[in-house]
């Protein structure tokens, strides 16, 4: 689906749009109907040197990460780290409380009986992995409950794929981008201003 030649020719990873002091941003939105058309369009746009702000889709489009140059998430590494923390905490908790702080003879067995500590150690490993990773995911993606959510095109959570390209102050690239998006199969091209996005 993704043509490798185009991807290779594409410029390096898209830098996030520069943080401007003015809270209003202008976007040109290319609306696509089909994921395959979208993938080709993204490849071609980046090949033509266009900096894509973001792509919004109703479901995860496979191959879009490569097309946009999104790096592989390092969440799995974080998850492993959290899991190890959980394991260490669980072992410390059980060995410290039952082995050192208040040793008790239970069933005539040693105070530190590791086989009996396996279930809790496993459960806490999973607990820390899951919650640590999910909290990290929401934090780095800046997802938190909001009263109002700014959306560039509401159809992007329904049935359309939206390519957003940031425009400069006086929208000088608009005609060129419109033509480029049209040529690559966009069914609609809109301009949208967004405050606080």
């Amino acid at each position: 689906m993704t043509s490798p030649a185009v991807t290779a020719a594409a410029p390096a990873a898209i830098a996030p749009a520069p943080a401007t002091t003015s809270s209003t941003k202008r976007f040109v939105l290319g609306i696509f109907d089909d994921e395959d058309v979208l993938l080709h369009a993204v490849d071609n746009l980046r090949g033509a040197g266009v900096k894509i702000y973001d792509v919004f889709s109703p479901y995860p489009v496979h191959g879009i990460d490569d097309a946009l140059g999104i790096e592989r998430s390092r969440l799995p590494i974080a998850a492993f780290f959290y899991g190890m923390c959980g394991l260490a905490f669980a072992l410390w908790l059980q060995i410290y409380t039952l082995g050192f702080d208040w040793p008790m003879i239970i069933g005539g067995k040693p105070a530190i009986s590791l086989p009996a500590f396996i279930p809790v150690a496993f459960e806490l490993t999973v607990f820390f992995t899951c919650h640590g990773m999910v909290i990290t995911f929401y934090t780095i993606s800046r997802l938190y409950p909001r009263f109002k959510t700014p959306v560039l095109d509401v159809r992007s959570t329904d049935d359309k794929f939206v390519v957003a390209i940031e425009l400069d102050e006086n929208s000088s690239q608009m005609p060129k981008l419109t033509q480029l998006l049209r040529e690559n199969g966009a069914s609609e091209v809109n301009q949208k201003e967004m405050t606080k996005f």
């Binding site: 973001d54 479901y59 995860p60 489009v61 929401y138 560039l152």
Partner: peptide, 20 residues
């Protein structure tokens, strides 16, 4: 809006979402 945590369907979010 509160429940959706500000989800917009951004490609980067989807990529992380799939990993998660």
């Amino acid at each position: 809006s509160i429940l959706s945590m500000g989800w917009t369907g951004s490609a980067k979010h989807w990529s992380r979402y799939e990993t998660v």
